[in-house]
Structures are given as structure tokens and as C-alpha cells.
Write a protein that binds this DNA or RNA. Structure first.
Lengths: 114, 114
DNA sequence: ACAACATACAACCGAATGGTTGTATGTTGG
DNA sequence: CCAACATACAACCATTCGGTTGTATGTTGT
């Protein structure tokens, strides 16, 4: 079963990852916490644009922010990354099930067709 | 290093996965080949809309089509799914490297800061 | 041969995306 | 205290997205 909320979450996660700037930001914040301005300094776009990317990642749950003085430190959430990986594993299992059914069919009755 | 082409491919893969209808189509075609019309019959939207979703998945390399008479049979490509999974694994490795550095730092010199 | 079916694709539309600039609001170091 | 910094957010814009309908082109069964 795919609930509405889990589909919403999957949409948000994959969408967040579907932008190279956001993937790069995620890579950086998984390695260590960065303030939003430290991140913004790395890219050839406005501060506001980078801030929006960070917000997309945050809404998807791929990073969290904590205040540290006047800075907002962003850290990557590896569990969210793993949850995406597990969605892909589930897809692989669907494929394996298909292969298993074909193998069983061939073993039991090579002439049958579906 | 992240080449331009690999980033383009990653963009296309994650974008293709960032829509629940496309994820559902992918699930079906990983389990068994479906004609475009067989897929279209499953969703409450026009044939053309489903066809576009199939085209997005195909351009991303997540499925391939082969002609069978007047039908076009779509099959999921599990290798493409695995390639996405490996991108996520790479992100997890970035995170593990960070943790390893912290552990090493604490073990060698608890007072030092970066 | 030809009617029915399967697919492809163009044109269009409203909503969302990814960027911009400008403005407001906190926080802090000296 | 206050100037400078860090962040947030609104408004705007061009492009892309996800859907529609309509039309063209293949393929096949009878």
C-alpha cells in the first residue's frame, strides 16, 4: 500500500534531490554543518536562491537547521537519505519478484504462457 | 568530481522519480512489461498524459520500449534504479567520512576544534 | 481494403519551479 | 547603542511541468 502521506513525502524527497545545486548542498551539509551564508558563498547565485534551496531540502526532511548565534547551521539527515534508498530497494524487490515468478514458471511448466 | 553529463543524468533520474504516477508506472513495468495503453487504462487521466509520463521515464533510462505488433511494450530497467541507489550510497559515504573524522579527532586530541 | 486500435506529437493552459531584487527582522561585536 | 551581518520572505519573471484536446501515422484482424 502507498498512503497519500508517504507518496507526498516521496514526491518531496525526490523533487528535492532532482536539482544539482541541492544535491551539492546536501553533500556539503552531510559532511559538516554549514551556515546558510557559508553555503551561499559557494554558488554563483543570490543568497535568496540558495536559501530557497535549503528550505526545499529542509521541508523534505533532508536537512535540519539549528540556531547558533546569528547563524542558522544546516546539517544533513542521513536517515532521510536512507529512507529514499529503501524506496529504491522496494522497487528492486518488485523486479526480483517478477524474475522469480518467471523462473518458477519455466521450472514447473516450460510450455505455459500468461 | 561530478561531470556535467552525470549531473544531467541524475537530474533526469530524480525528476522522473519525483512524481507518484511515474513511480507507480515504474513499479508496474518492473514487475512485467505493459503496453502504453494497458498502463493508460490504470489511471484517471488521458492516454496522452500517461504517454508523456512513460516518455519521461524512458528519457531518464528507467524503462525501455520494444515494439510488439501494434503495441509498444514498456519494461522497467532495474539497473537504472540501482544507479540511483548508488548515488544515495555515495551521499551516505560522505556522511560516514564526516563521522569518521570526528571520531578520529576525539580519539587523538579531545581539545582541538575546527 | 479498411475499420478499429495503438501510438506519437503539437498546441495550448494553469500551476509550480528556479531565479531575481528589495525589504524587514534578529543578533552581535566593539 | 548601533553598524554590520545573517536570515527570512514577498513580489516578480521566464521557463518547465503536468495536464488537456486534437490530429497524424502505423498496424492488424477480418
Amino acid at each position: 500500500m502507498v498512503t497519500e502521506e508517504s507518496a507526498d513525502r516521496a514526491d518531496a524527497l525526490f523533487h528535492a534531490l532532482a536539482d544539482r545545486t541541492r544535491r551539492d548542498i546536501l553533500r556539503r551539509v552531510l559532511a559538516r554543518a554549514h551556515s546558510v551564508s557559508a553555503l551561499a558563498a559557494k554558488y554563483d547565485m543570490s543568497f535568496a536562491a540558495v536559501q530557497k534551496h535549503v528550505a526545499v531540502l529542509e521541508k523534505a526532511g533532508l536537512l535540519t537547521k539549528r540556531r547558533d548565534g546569528r547563524e542558522q547551521l544546516a546539517s544533513g539527515d542521513v536517515q532521510a537519505v536512507q529512507s529514499v534508498a529503501s524506496m529504491l530497494t522496494e522497487l528492486e524487490q518488485v523486479w526480483r519478484g517478477h524474475i522469480a515468478r518467471i523462473d518458477a514458471l519455466i521450472a514447473s511448466d516450460p510450455e505455459q504462457e500468461n
